[in-house]
């Protein structure tokens, strides 16, 4: 049972890290299960998808209760993230494990570089995230009624067309690599649609459940989810995410961010080795 306790502990660590850094646990669970426990990549992705559904469920509920998430906008976009996830999950069964490992390494490197750049920008400006950055001014062809319905009380969304494309892409990434896809959805809503950052993050969290479940169903029914691995891991990630969200204000995230970037680069290197093997 030592392996089970290690999985719970590893899942808890992934949940704490992910929650403190706002990344979700998915990005760490796949490397943990593949590199740490020798699971095939597709099985690890399946378990990771279940973990992100569980962690997003409770927090999305709280965001809705506090009216931080935009339900109409989230549901409209998740129609397309779910479609992307359906396609992504089918593609995942067609491409070899080594290609998936290469894609995962690319994702890890992208996240590491993004974290370094945002850290540098924050250091230069020292004003936190650009919470109210204006949306890119793309040519707008959306009918006004649709946008009104999707807007919030103090902001108006725009550029629905490009956001639909971004949502499809986020769904494919989520299904292929077992992550929540917030790394795509949040920038799309915030920078392209003009949704305030906090609302975008909360709405992305709400969307993770449907996005991941559209592909998790395929992994489940194709026998790629092992209940004996998924049980301890999901439980650990959920506990970790709960601890992380409650202690976020007490932790110096700068040190954690630095440590995390090192972990990401190391994990990316391991994944590249796996892809080239």
């Amino acid at each position: 049972m030592a392996a089970g306790l290690l999985m719970i502990a590893g899942g808890t660590a992934a949940g704490i890290f992910g929650s403190l850094l706002g990344l979700g646990g998915g990005i760490l669970i796949v490397p943990l299960l593949t590199l740490g426990f020798g699971l095939p990549l597709r099985e690890a992705v399946g378990v990771s998808l279940v973990s992100v559904i569980a962690t997003s469920g409770a927090s999305a509920g709280v965001y809705l209760q506090r009216h931080m998430a935009n339900l109409r906008l989230g549901m409209t976009l998740e129609l397309f993230t779910a479609l992307g996830a359906l396609v992504g999950a089918l593609v995942a069964f067609l491409i070899p494990d080594r290609a998936l490992a290469g894609l995962f390494a690319a994702l890890l490197l992208y996240v590491a570089v993004t974290m370094i750049r945002s850290g540098l920008r924050r250091g230069a400006r020292d004003d936190g995230l650009a919470a109210d950055a204006p949306a890119a001014d793309l040519e707008n062809t959306d009918p006004p009624g649709t946008l009104d319905r999707l807007s919030g009380p103090d902001y108006r969304v725009r550029n629905l067309g490009p956001a639909v494309g971004g949502s499809l892409f986020a769904g494919v990434v989520s299904a292929l690599l077992g992550v929540g896809g917030g790394i795509v959805k949040v920038p799309v809503m915030h920078l392209v649609m003009g949704v305030p950052l906090r609302v975008a993050a909360a709405t992305s969290n709400l969307m993770i459940g449907v996005t991941a479940s559209a592909s998790a169903i395929i992994y489940l029914l194709r026998g790629e989810i092992d209940p004996l691995v998924a049980g301890p891991t999901v439980l650990g990630v959920f506990v970790g995410a709960t601890i992380g969200s409650r202690s976020a204000h007490r932790v110096d995230v700068r040190v954690l961010r630095l440590l995390f970037v090192v972990v990401l680069f190391y994990t990316a290197w391991q994944m590249i080795e796996r892809a080239l093997r």
Binding site: V50, I53, G209, S213, L220, I225, A230, G231, V234
Partner: peptide, 21 residues
């Protein structure tokens, strides 16, 4: 058997977003 309860829990997790929709 733990698998039975685990499968039920995992299916419930995966089904939760569908219940929400």
């Amino acid at each position: 058997r733990p698998e039975g309860v685990l499968w039920l829990g995992l299916v419930a997790v995966i089904g939760t977003p569908t219940v929400r929709v």
